[in-house]
Design a protein around this nucleic acid. Structure first.
Length: 951
RNA sequence: CCCCGGAUAGCUCAUUCGGUAGAGCACAUGCCUGAUAAGCGUGAGGUGGCUGGAUCGAAACCAGCUCUGGGGACCA
């Protein structure tokens, strides 16, 4: 028996079936780094149109988590797919280096700045710490397969960046957006600093809940504003008891700063006669009295207090009560009643105790009535010595004493505890207070910043589109941006103000430029070391340096100027900013506002957001839940390409789910894609594109169909990448591999590929198709499966001379000819006929009549319509159906199928199996010298080779 | 409390106009042993969240409800 196997063209390749990604990827990375791959890509792309994705800097602290990985990988998809689309798409990664978290870390190690360590040394320690963090994160980002200028990233603490941050502020000052003011800001009494809005977290907190009496200066005057129920006059004969306005608060500690009572102009207020005495505490009430409450809330309030009997004796409109004067419950102070829109009937009494020092709305409404701040609470949360009742005490500790004291003075009505959501510091997790402090602001109104920003938002493309509404709402409603902080590790504002007037120096921004030059040389410490006399000479005595530091959001917010504006390879405005959806509040907004304030336009043309990663149950990842998926664990187990494919398979616009199950499925998907590529390569063995490529018009119709199909899918994929719709792109790739290729084209061509004479048209036509397909597919994979695409690229035959990483979309694909004998429609019908045959064959298998489909012979009874298509393939229909015989008969016999006009009759072949091609043919053994072979195999082994016309 | 989505197979998601519900994965099962730690085939499965309405006819249109995601507001 001859060994005919050696006469076959069996697939063969060095491309391994299994990627061993965890081991092999690091090797590839090493080589890439050694070769200076990123620079090579830049050189290769020189002259192409620029595409700038500006990196939002992650904070330089801690290990990278899955959210970092998702963000960087999505950016990498953009960069690489834009490169495929013919752009020069550089990527300059950055890090946000200043700020409280690093300060806290360093403080833990070396102690408090200015106490244990000099400020300058502390800053150097912070700089060292940040550098270390950057290096650690960088290593991990590189391992993700993210391409970028890792040798020359931007750091917000680079000297020249620090200098440019100062210059950016100078420009904003020049453009008239800066102002100084006292304002209540969220203040961390533990951190001793003002907080940015984005640094505020809400947690549940148990607070006091107290109702307090404010007595009128002149009772008669108050009663005069009320109209009695009944005959219209209020006098002692109809009702009795002391009169008071009642407020409710959950922050007794703000009472020392209480300066007004707010009412709503449109609300009805009732004068209620009742008895508030209580068995629990004899101090709470002493017989009949009359109190003022919002009428709509009377029932609820009395129920809360446990008072059953009451009488509404008179009522008044809120607007009638304006400017009535009350007494502070314990301080020597007059308390006017004022009107404000913020008063509601949701909770409380309808009368709001107002302390401009400690509430944003209080501050605003106070301003309208000319009531300023008292500044009784210091930076550390301790009351000033002149504070009534609680001098020198800490705000966290006075709630109880104040409540007790109110009771003693007969001002307390009821006290209780309430659990509610309350603002906390995101770092120290301690409750925040509002505190009026001198701060520097970028004004939203003073020079039309808000209007310009809202206008600019309309010119930006927001993906998904609700992003626009979101940021519009935020910009529309936000207060002025407080950019000053009282911290150590931050870029100084570098403002110089007059000691007396507190006005900026007339040449303030020129001086800032001088400082910026010093900072460029020596870093921001230069400002702190600077003697004013060096800048101002004799004038120095009249001026003082502001040593506040900038909000870190300002640092990253101005990178459009300090980084994009400085680096030649980047163009401003950027084509894309891409960050998590929390950055609508953060970086997107800080960048927008500074962009407008400095240059009058948004620093980006498009903004893309992604959601957060959650576990299979939709829970946020947290250490305490133990559901954290660490990107490096995934990489070390499955490889970067799997992690990347997961990111590429997910709808990142909302929540992104990750679990072991999902990653396992992703790995399956990867194997399918990898194996398909492997099969392409294995069948290209011996193929030399220079000499072996068959021209389109000479190719077999099935092979042309395959190329045309590939072109069609490529167009879908291009569109998907253009739309940043990576899920659709990877799905299209996977579907192409398993459906169009695996279960149709590749299955059919195995016979021809293996058995046709090597180098014959039948063989080369097929290889030509596979060659074009793998060229295209390798590029499709590249943005997502970067490592795998690189591996595939090495194995594609022929001279390529260049790396996959700067290729553009493959242009060697072509559509079917317009006048083609076999159309896309025809192949679609043939595919469904094949499905019907498979069903019928499956029944035969169940009965044990056939095993492999090659054991069967099929007669297809077809209507004219169906037959017209099937007959186009002539005898080669059997190769498409993968049976030994397929005969089309116009008629109506056989078993019906789901296709109208198609019935089938299948029998097991009685012919001998050809030892070489495994088909069962009548002519097996017809040639004496090859008793085990069928006719076509004989010509393939020692003749001209069989001729295939269609498939 | 307000606004916007979603609810379809075990899972992830499709379904252009209102006309007998569709894919992938997973599962089950068979074939092959020339893609072999692969490949191919076949199959089962669904009260389209609930209730009501207009319609010859609804998963799709309308109303209400439930659950869920996102955003906003409030948080004295």
């Amino acid at each position: 028996m001859t060994d005919y196997k050696s006469t076959l063209n069996l697939p063969d390749t060095d491309f391994p079936m299994r990627g061993n990604l965890a081991q092999n990827e690091p090797k590839m990375l090493n080589n890439w780094t050694k070769d200076g791959l990123y620079q090579k890509i830049r050189e290769a792309c020189a002259g192409r149109p620029n595409y700038t994705l500006h990196d939002g800097p992650p904070y330089a602290n801690g290990n990278i988590h899955i959210g970092h990985a998702v963000n960087k990988i999505l950016k990498d998809f953009c960069i690489k797919s834009k490169t495929l689309s013919g752009f020069d798409a550089p990527y300059v990664p950055g890090w946000d280096c200043h700020g409280l978290p690093i300060e806290n870390q360093v403080e833990k190690k070396v102690g408090k700045a200015g106490v244990k360590v000099p400020f300058g040394e502390f800053r150097q320690k912070c700089r060292d710490y940040a550098s270390k963090q950057v290096e650690g994160q960088k290593k991990d980002f590189i391992r993700l397969g993210v391409f970028g200028d890792w040798d020359k990233p931007y750091l917000t603490m680079d000297y020249d960046t620090e200098a440019d941050i100062i210059r950016s502020l100078a420009k904003i000052v020049d453009n008239g957006h800066l102002h100084r003011g006292f304002k209540p800001v969220y203040w961390s009494v533990v951190g001793g600093s003002a907080l940015a809005e984005a640094e505020v977290e809400y947690h549940d907190k148990t607070s006091f809940s107290i109702d307090v009496r404010y007595a009128p200066e002149n009772e008669a005057e108050v009663l005069d504003k009320f109209t009695a129920v009944g005959d219209g006059t209020v006098d002692a004969s109809k009702s009795e008891g002391q009169v008071s306005a009642v407020i409710w608060t959950t922050t007794p500690w703000t009472l020392p700063s209480s300066q007004a009572i707010s009412a709503h102009a449109d609300l009805d207020y009732a004068l209620v006669e009742l008895d508030l005495s209580s068995e629990d505490d004899s101090r709470l009430g002493k017989g009949k009295e009359r109190i003022i409450l919002a009428e709509a809330m009377v029932e609820d309030i009395l129920q809360r207090w446990g008072v059953e009997e009451h009488k509404v004796v008179a009522r008044a409109k809120g607007s009638d009560l304006e400017n009535l004067v009350f007494k502070h419950p314990f301080a020597e102070r007059k308390i006017p009643l004022i009107l404000g829109e913020h008063v509601t009937t949701d909770a409380g009494t309808g009368l709001v105790h107002t302390a401009p020092d400690h509430g944003m709305e209080d501050f605003v409404v106070g301003k309208e009535y000319g009531i300023g701040t008292l500044n009784l609470v210091g930076p550390n949360g301790v009351f000033a010595e002149e504070t009534p009742e609680v001098p020198g005490q800490h705000v966290y500790k006075v709630d109880e004493p104040i409540t007790e004291m109110l009771a003693d003075k007969g001002r307390l009505i009821r006290q209780d505890k309430i659990r509610h959501s309350y603002a906390h510091c995101w770092r120290t997790k301690t409750p925040l207070i509002y505190r009026a402090t001198p701060q520097w602001f970028i004004s939203m109104a003073q020079n039309g910043l808000r209007e310009s920003a809202l206008e600019a938002i309309k010119g930006v493309r927001w993906v998904p589109d609700w992003g626009q509404e979101r940021i519009e709402g935020m910009v529309d409603g936000r207060p002025d941006w407080c950019i000053s902080r009282q911290r150590t590790w931050g870029v100084p504002l570098c403002l110089i103000v007059n000691k007396e007037t507190e006005e900026l120096h007339p040449r303030a921004t020129d001086l800032m430029e001088q400082v910026a030059k010093l900072v460029e040389e020596n870093g921001m410490q230069a400002w702190f070391d600077l003697e004013l006399s060096e800048l101002l000479g004799d004038e120095a005595n009249d001026y003082v340096k502001i040593e506040d530091t900038l909000d870190v959001w300002f640092d990253s917010g101005v990178t459009h100027s300090a980084v994009m504006g400085r680096r030649d390879e980047l163009s401003e405005p950027a084509d894309l900013y891409l960050e998590g959806s929390d950055q609508h509040r953060g970086w997107f907004q800080s960048s927008l506002l500074t962009g407008i304030a400095m240059n009058g336009h948004a620093p980006y043309k498009a903004v893309l957001t992604h959601g957060f990663t959650v576990d299979a149950n939709g829970n946020k990842m947290s250490k305490s839940l133990g559901n954290v998926v660490a990107p490096l664990d995934v990489i070390n187990k499955l490889g970067s390409d799997i992690l990347r494919l997961w990111v590429g398979s997910t709808d990142y616009r909302s929540e992104i789910t990750v679990s072991d199950e999902i990653l396992k499925r992703t790995a399956d998907k990867y194997r399918r894609m990898r194996n398909t590529a492997r099969f392409f390569l294995a069948n290209l063995k011996g193929f030399d594109p220079k000499t072996d490529v068959v021209s389109p018009e000479d190719m077999l119709p099935l092979d042309r169909w395959a190329v045309a199909k590939t072109l069609q899918v490529q167009n879908e994929i291009k569109t998907a990448f253009d739309d940043y719709n990576f899920m659709v792109a990877t799905n299209a790739m996977h579907h192409f591999c398993s459906f169009d290729m695996g279960s149709f084209y590749l299955d059919i061509i195995k016979d021809r590929q293996y058995t046709a004479k090597a180098g014959s048209l039948a063989h080369k036509s097929c290889q030509t198709a596979l060659y074009h397909i793998v060229q295209a597919v390798c590029r499709w994979f590249m943005p997502v499966l970067s490592f795998t695409a690189f591996e595939i690229w090495q194995q594609i035959p022929g001279e390529k001379g260049q790396e996959i990483f700067w290729q553009t979309w493959y242009e060697g694909l072509y559509a079917n000819a317009d006048n083609a004998e076999m159309t896309e429609q025809d192949w679609k019908l043939i595919d469904s006929v094949k499905t019907e045959c498979n069903k019928a064959l499956e029944l035969m298998r169940k009965d044990g009549k056939v095993g492999s489909s090659l054991e069967a012979e099929i007669t297809l009874y077809a209507s004219d319509e169906v037959a017209n298509v099937l007959e186009k393939l002539e005898d080669e229909l059997r190769f498409v159906l993968i049976t030994s015989q397929a005969k089309v008969v116009r008629g109506d016999e056989g078993e019906p199928t789901e296709i109208e006009g198609l019935k089938l009759d299948i029998v097991a072949s009685e012919h001998k199996k050809c030892d070489r091609c495994w088909h069962r043919r009548e002519d097996v053994g017809a040639v004496e010298s090859h008793p085990e072979l069928c006719g076509r195999c004989v010509t393939n082994v020692e003749g001209e080779g069989e001729v295939r016309l269609y498939a």
